[in-house]
């Protein structure tokens, strides 16, 4: 692979909203040329001319000439993004990382998608690609701090519309007192376990999901988040420790992930 291409885009739409005292930015970037990405893949976005490092962001959607990102404002780089306006030019590198396999792999299987908070981003990318008629066997479990996050995604991303054909379980922690994994386990007690789980979210949630995968012997894919400096396998800032049988293996999330297969004796060490 040659050098990562530096892409230049223009902000076509920028929406800022707040839920549970956390600020989010929805960016739609008009891109030149054609890019392809599979769910789980990410870009490295320049957050300003004076930024020394780019920031990794998972792709929310990529279609026609429009790249969408959903960003939680957390620190120095994401705060700078707040000052960007419609029409501003942005630079990014990528597409980086190993995403999920071809969408057809998931058709006809009994699959649970389990997302927590911002973990919805690559899951949304995935479900928006599904041919809905092929998705009857798919259950989406989505947890968030409170209902306001779902409402915001509905308003800004037409969330319900995109997910119209899926069986979905929305789990607002504040209103229900339950975690998304609690609700998933209740579902399994009544309906049996899925064959495969795809999950993205906070580490605590991923850990519980992985425990379920190990208990039941099914397969799964976890999409992990890491801070990184280069995004392309050089800086060694984003290791993921994997236990495969007896052996510990360290893999960098940027090039070997962020999607990691688990199950059948293989797990991520959190």
């Amino acid at each position: 692979m040659k050098k990562p291409l530096i892409h230049i885009g223009k902000i076509a739409q920028r929406t800022v909203f707040t839920c549970d005292r956390i600020t989010y930015i929805l960016l739609k970037i008009e891109i030149q040329g054609e890019l392809k990405a599979s769910p789980g893949q990410f870009i490295m976005l320049e957050t300003g001319n004076d930024s020394y490092l780019d920031r990794p962001f998972s792709i929310l959607q990529l279609r026609e000439r429009e790249l969408s990102l959903l960003i939680e404002v957390k620190g120095r780089g994401t705060r700078k993004l707040l000052s960007m306006k419609k029409g501003d030019s942005v630079r990014f590198k990528g597409i980086h990382g190993n995403g999920l396999g071809p969408i057809e792999n998931y058709y006809g299987k009994k699959i649970a998608l389990i997302a927590g908070g911002m973990g919805i981003v690559p899951i949304f990318h995935l479900v928006s690609q599904f041919n809905i008629t092929g998705g009857g066997q798919i259950q989406l479990f989505f947890g968030a701090r409170s209902r306001s996050f779902f409402d915001a995604l509905d308003k800004h991303l037409q969330f319900s519309e995109v997910l119209g054909g899926f069986n979905k379980y929305l789990v607002p922690l504040k209103e229900t007192g339950k975690t998304v994994v609690d609700v998933f386990r209740e579902y399994v007690e009544k309906n049996g376990a899925p064959n495969h789980i795809l999950s993205c979210g906070p580490e605590g949630m991923l850990k519980s999901v992985q425990e379920f995968i190990m208990e039941t012997g099914i397969s799964g894919e976890l999409i992990l988040e890491r801070r990184m400096a280069c995004g392309r396998g050089m800086c060694m800032a984003c290791p993921v420790m994997i236990l495969d049988g007896e052996a510990d293996i360290i893999k960098m999330a940027c090039t070997k992930g962020p999607v990691f297969a688990v199950g059948k004796g293989r797990k991520v060490i959190f």
Binding site: Y52, R227, M236, P239
Partner: peptide
Amino acid sequence: RPGNPLPRVAEVDSGMLNSIGLA
């Protein structure tokens, strides 16, 4: 050496901090 605990990098004014830890 597995290296240091995460996070290992952070941007600061005109530069960055790293603590990779000789991984």
